[in-house]
């Protein structure tokens, strides 16, 4: 089914992801402008705002805080886009991914887990109380989202009886996993937001802590951190397509178009849905994650396991 892409596709992937991230950030900017200025305020004109901001940050002076550890912080920041793009390596475009190893699902999960180190290091580096608070907030967040997330991923892999992303897609030729694993799908979307520390899970970079882990970073460093966050969101949300939404499967249209449509729909849903929720603070959310989401995803896995046994 899926096989390895040519070299040009490998080189193209990061740029395609950056373009997708810019589009999603633009959509978010439009929705934000609509809330701030109303329909009469021509919110569509805010669409290029993320690019302008990016340019401003690129030309801005980086910033170092007194007696901080700039390199540690910088490593953390660089890890964000690195984790996003490397996780994107197993993201199929149509039926072809940059690579499709036997343990593709595990690889994706392993790369995402780099975010733990990334955000914490970015928060620790500047030697600033508020950014330290932001960094530690992400660790607490990880404790809440990671297990339901992993159980959701495993459930999809269980349904396909394979850890190869191409085979997970192939197993959904008839029926999408989202249809008969709705709980796993919903939990995956939640944890995709949490992993990208965006939306209702943006507490690690919360405005209440002056930007949290990002509070002290300026210039290129800030650009890489914030753009990397959008990349991470695109990749994690995009991975729900091969896992639960049948990948490139669909009638009439070619596989690549289905991938594009489904990814756009998921991201649109997440960006629009963000407006419905305030930021979830972990001291209140973690209990919900462990007492509702973990048993729920395990129950979902059990149901799928029984179905697999009776195949």
């Amino acid at each position: 089914m899926a096989d390895t892409a040519p070299l040009w596709a490998v080189v193209l992937l990061p740029f395609a992801l950056v373009a997708a991230a810019a589009v999603v950030a633009g959509l978010d900017a439009v929705l934000t402008a609509a809330a701030e200025r109303g329909r009469g305020g021509r919110p569509l004109r805010a669409a290029p705002a993320p690019l302008r901001t990016g340019l401003r940050l690129l030309g801005g002076q980086p910033r170092r805080t007194t007696a901080g550890d700039p390199w540690l912080g910088r490593i953390g920041i660089a890890l964000v886009p690195v984790a996003a793009v490397l996780a994107g390596a197993v993201l199929p475009w149509g039926f072809r991914a940059v690579t499709d190893p036997v343990v593709g699902v595990v690889w994706f999960n392993a790369m995402e887990a780099l975010a733990w180190a990334a955000v914490w290091l970015a928060g620790w580096g500047p030697n600033s109380a508020l950014s330290l608070i932001g960094g530690y907030r992400f660790l607490a967040q990880g404790l809440a989202y990671e297990l339901p997330h992993m159980f959701a991923i495993t459930t999809a892999a269980l349904g396909a009886e394979s850890l190869r992303v191409g085979e997970v897609v192939a197993a959904q030729r008839g029926l999408w996993f989202a249809v008969w694993m709705p709980a796993a799908f919903a939990v995956f979307l939640l944890s995709a937001l949490a992993m990208a520390f965006w939306g209702p899970f943006d507490h690690p970079l919360g405005r209440d802590a002056a930007g949290g882990a990002a509070a002290e970073h300026a210039g290129v460093d800030r650009l890489v951190l914030l753009a990397g966050r959008w990349l991470l969101l695109v990749v994690t949300a995009g991975f729900s397509v091969p896992l639960f939404l049948g990948g490139g499967h669909g009638p009439w249209l070619p596989a690549w178009a289905w991938t594009l449509l489904k990814t756009a729909a998921v991201l649109g849903l997440l960006v629009a849905g963000r407006r419905l929720l305030p930021t979830l603070r972990m001291e209140r959310y973690l209990e919900f994650a462990w007492t509702v989401l973990v048993p729920l995803t395990l129950l979902q896995a059990l149901v799928v396991a029984v179905v697999v046994l009776n195949r």
């Binding site: 934000t32 809330a35 701030e36 209702p200 943006d202 507490h203 209440d208 963000r274 305030p278 930021t279």
Partner: peptide, 9 residues
């Protein structure tokens, strides 16, 4: 401060 910028705006 509660992280709900949309209704705040």
């Amino acid at each position: 401060v509660s992280g709900w910028p949309d209704p705040a705006a």
